[in-house]
């Protein structure tokens, strides 16, 4: 197989277990050595470096966190900076900065041991550790697989946020379609060691390549598709009623959220506001329905990956 990941892209490898997605990931940092073929990062063959040197440039996060239980949180995060020879002050500053970034106040958490953290907190530390030595590429192998749904959702949002801030290239492995749709700029669907489809989340949901992909991603799930369409795609112009009993939706929110709000408050329409909370139009049930169906029929992706919808 051949595929290319653009810099700063968030790519999700999606497929059932045993399809080869983890193998593909481990080939990138040479935990598995390729028997044939070439893998290049920034145009440099991964085999031109010794494997440890290569891996120090690539962040790596796995499911069971893999935190070192005998090291404090701060020491765990400092592992790679130490391997690449940063001095103590720079390392300490970086550790604190990253713990804050992943939402664990350094003062409180630096000196704890992994066993003293919850699963979600451990996974945050795992992310901080992977980011520590400023890698340009991040490999994540079902990092949130063992977490409860609420924690997982929160961490997914924060990962998206951090990716927006730091702009690493991310290759993320999962078998969870919701997770893939929520995170990816681009989804690569795999089956039996092959790529069966490689496209934006919306295109994969609206144009599954075959029955396998259709079943896997639940392409018939309209709600899932709606979650990828921003409100402004379905907005109706017009001055909204002055008095309305529903809270407004923001144009950048998605239609699934809007539909939820609409059904929940029972009003015929919602007021749509822009980022500064100024009303710019309305949204009703019919408009949502049209957006959902028009989208399926349309041949070009409505939302290009570079302006992917802001997720809740």
């Amino acid at each position: 197989m051949t595929f290319t990941v653009a810099a700063s892209q968030f790519v999700v490898l999606l497929g059932p277990s045993g399809c080869g997605k983890t193998t593909l990931l481990k080939l990138v940092n040479r935990l598995y050595e390729p028997t044939s073929g070439t893998i290049a990062i920034n145009g440099i063959d991964t085999r031109s470096l010794p494997a440890p040197a290569l891996r120090r440039r690539i962040g790596y996060v796995i499911q069971q966190t893999g935190l070192f239980p005998h090291m404090r949180v701060g020491e765990n995060v400092a592992v790679v900076p130490r391997l690449v020879g940063w001095d103590k002050r720079r390392t300490a500053a970086r550790v604190d900065e990253l713990l804050e970034l992943v939402g664990l106040p350094a003062e409180e958490y630096r000196r704890r041991y992994p066993a003293q953290l919850s699963g979600g907190q451990q996974q945050r530390v795992g992310l901080a550790r992977a980011l520590a030595a400023e890698p340009s590429t991040l490999l994540m192998d079902e990092p949130f697989g063992a977490l409860d749904a609420i924690t997982r959702g929160r961490l997914q949002d924060e990962l998206r946020h951090i990716h927006g801030l730091l702009g690493q290239t991310v290759i993320f492995v999962t078998h969870d379609v919701e997770e893939a749709v929520r995170l990816a700029d681009r989804i690569v669907v795999m089956r039996d060691g092959r790529i069966v489809q490689d496209d934006t989340p919306l295109r994969i949901l609206s144009h599954p390549a075959d029955d396998f992909v259709r079943d896997l991603v639940g392409a018939s799930d309209v709600l899932r598709r709606l979650s990828l369409i921003p409100v402004h795609q379905a907005i109706r112009s017009g001055i909204p009623d002055a008095a309305d009993r529903c809270p407004p939706v923001t144009a950048s929110q998605n239609l699934r959220t809007a539909l939820n709000l609409l059904l929940d408050c029972g009003a015929p329409r919602l007021v749509v506001v822009d980022a500064d909370a100024r009303p710019i139009g309305t949204l009703d049930l019919e408009a949502i329905q049209q957006a959902a169906t028009v989208d399926v029929a349309s041949d070009s992706p409505i939302v290009p990956p570079d302006i992917a919808p802001t997720r809740r």
């Binding site: 440039r57 796995i62 893999g66 935190l67 070192f68 239980p69 790679v80 391997l83």
Partner: peptide, 27 residues
């Protein structure tokens, strides 16, 4: 010692000696 922890030591860029001395042996 948990295999996942050891694989992670290698995955983060430790060579065989570092993975043994810093992770496997202390554990």
């Amino acid at each position: 010692v948990d295999r996942a922890v050891l694989e992670n030591a290698r995955g983060l860029g430790m060579n065989a000696i570092q993975a043994f001395a810093r992770v496997q042996a202390p554990l």
